[in-house]
Design a protein around this nucleic acid. Sequence first.
RNA 1: GGGCGCUUAGCUCAGUUGGUUUAGAGCACUUGGUUUACACCCAAGGGGUCAUAGGUUCGAAUCCUAUAGCGCCCACCA
Length: 876
Amino acid sequence: MQISSKFDHTKIEKKWYSFWNKNNFFNSEPDDREPFTIVIPPPNVTGLLHMGHMLNNTIQDILIRKARMMGKNACWVPGTDHASIATEAKVVENLKSLGLNKSEISREEFVKHAWEWTEKYGGGILDQLKRLGCSCDWNRTKFTLDDDMYESVILAFIDLHQKGYIYRGYRMINWDPEAETTVSDEEVNYVEEESSLYYLNYPIDGSKEKLIIATTRPETIFGDTAVCVNPKDKRYSKFVGKEAIVPICDRKIPIISDPYVDIEFGTGCLKVTPAHDLNDYNLRNKHKLEIIDIFDSKGRFNENGLHYKNKDRFEVRKEIVKELKEKKILNKSEVYKHNVGRSDRTNAIIEPKISRQWFLKMDQISKPAITNVLKNENIKFFPKKFKSTYRYWLENIKDWNISRQLSWGHQIPAFYYGENKEEYVVAQNKNEAKKIIEKQKGLKLKDDELIQDEDVLDTWFSSWLWPISVFDGIRNPENQEIKYYYPTQDLVTGPDIIFFWVARMIISGYEFRDEKPFSNVYFTGIVRDKLGRKMSKQLGNSPDAIELIDKYGADSVRVGLMLSSAAGNDLLFDESLCQQGKNFTNKLWNALRLVNGWEVDDGKEISEVNSLALEWYENKFNQVLDLINKNYKNYRISDVLMSSYRLVWDDYCSWLLESVKPEFGEKIDNQTKSKIKSLFEDNLKLLHPFMPFLTEEIWYQLASRTSSESITISKWPDSNKFKNDIIINFEIAKDIISYIRNFRKEKNIPFKKELSLYFASKTSDLHYISIIKKLVFLNKIEYSEKDKFKSVNSFIIGSIEFFIPLEGDIDLKSELDRLNKELDYNLKFLKSVENKLKNKSFIDNAPKDIVEKEKKKVSDAKSKIEVIKKALSDLS
RNA sequence: GGGCGCUUAGCUCAGUUGGUUUAGAGCACUUGGUUUACACCCAAGGGGUCAUAGGUUCGAAUCCUAUAGCGCCCACCA
């Protein structure tokens, strides 16, 4: 049967994925093996696979497959996140296209739409992960709004409320006028933007003088409730205590002083708008000022905006500048750069707003998160550098605003009652709430006398429980699963969600289970294009993930991604990396074709060449295996790939297979072929975590297997001792081979023409003679005196002098040049080492073994120089 | 403004507690190659004063200081 010389990934990927699934190789149940657990960072339920997901999930799959082969009970829990703001925004968009407005339908109707949307578009990303080859336990797939997950979130809320960590309060919060909800501090991105600084005239009551106030937001004058100057500012001290008149509104406001005001900035006068600026709000608290809110939830002016009522804040800015100019209130304006906060989700400019929200007190419950990462390293970060980011956030932690004015999510389990619905209880549901009220207050309430809070919880308030809730550890803390799988081992995620998610999972882990959620955190970098730009839809520089898989195959894409992605470093992605991956798959495929094509001669004994080559490769393999195991421990995954790549391509294919390959028309002995195959299988195992599909295919082609077998569940190769001598001696043989190949090339001697190689003095240091002979087509390698030949090319490798007899005359000059160059180099080298040894402080201070090494260098160099000198004198 | 990190071959990066003259790898590049595994290949080769300036040391890409450039995170200066 003829196997195609090109490997066709399309045929085998589907076949093997369904094979794995059918045989439940990825499923995990608690047993007596050691567990190895990863919970997936749940992607947005309606999202699509992008390059970041590909990288992140490839790494997780590598870790989980490796663990599975190590004999651990590997469990990778997949799932999706309801992503409240993002999904709700999409649903609102969709409703609009149907001619429906969110505000016109009931909450129940909206949630129903959202579920329909989720069922229609959701979960696609999980199927895409299957294309990548991810070995998740699909029986465990979770969604953050599943009933059990929902209940867990509610119970966690109730628990924290009972412990007194959750409270309700008025605070200055970040308002996203587009999504019409609050967002947490972490969800606000500050971007430097160019705008204008306007200088406005504020008349002083009962005086002809005026104050000039610099502001970037002239439209907020409607919310002004004071003017503030620095108490040390002599220019204005006479005005403090008087009143200024807000232009256009003609309202009188007090002139106060506070050291917060920077004398140097602008004119040194600050207008105070407590409802729409955090600092102003702080001033208001200190000086007991009035608060005037001027916006509605969409960022439009309310009645306090007078004739601008119902107009958008930015529209008004333009218009009011015009009005102020006309009324000669605008003194001047200048271009000004400052930071503007934008919503992470909608990119709308954030409006600071005072609002009543739910908060989680963080100072107490976050304590273990500091100790266990920074003090005792119970949780390790890879790379370490992110610990300092983490530390800063935790040491300056603020209370977490957990309520969102949305419908898609976990509805806050607070029930309001009483005349103004100001009193509330927190309970799992209305009935529970009624019971509690009756017990506490003796009130018997009817259903319609209780109203549940309209808000939902921040999405991260469900994700922070993920490693616990997927094993039902909140509702049922003593169940077998949570006890077995928790804490999980590795978390693979991006550093961009270190606060949103990683830190909070650690906090919740200690709070709810008094135990870390995972032992190691691997931070991936950002996938950028080759110009270093972040991949984004707008730039159109992100390749379509599925198209890449179609084009190159999942294995090639995985290899491409892993070729250059040290933990935490950004990855500059280019399609040529996938091509490199594809070339590698092709190389492996052809190695299979070669090996499988060999015909066996049962009567044939193993040759010296073959047994030497096999012995060398086994040693080499074990040396590399050691390195690979070490690199896995340190999460140096791309180094693991690179060592495996070179082992297979260079050592296995280029050296071993070329060494044992039968001559044309010859057959191979049985022993060599079976050994070559079993070494091939070991290679495949090392590569399997990176290239699951191809390795399975080849593994099956190499031997007849039963359908219950799979490389997926095969055993990772054992580490065996290796002899360094063998590896070093083979390196010398490689050098000799390279020299002769180069010699042929330079002298234009065809490969087919046999050569003879001699060594000029008797030695026992020369090994692998038979292999050298075979690989560079020599008829002999033996001792001879040089002067038996008319002309020779001599060279030194190690400390052995070799020569190749030449036909006809030699190019004396070029030979002399070559040898002189080598002599020169060695003399210089000798001198520098001797100088080092002459240095008394070196001898006194350097460790003994270093000095010994240097001494050996001297003797080696000396003998080499002798050889070269002799070769030179032979020539002349 | 504060903090962290980076700067090594054309590109992407290794270089683990300072110890091979002439600092490694992969890719790219150059040259040669119709031997029946693979041109998605084979073989050989070229290429770096380790950002700059000082310092510590017998010895520095590696440790210290300063400078420049780049990146990231945090921060309410109107």
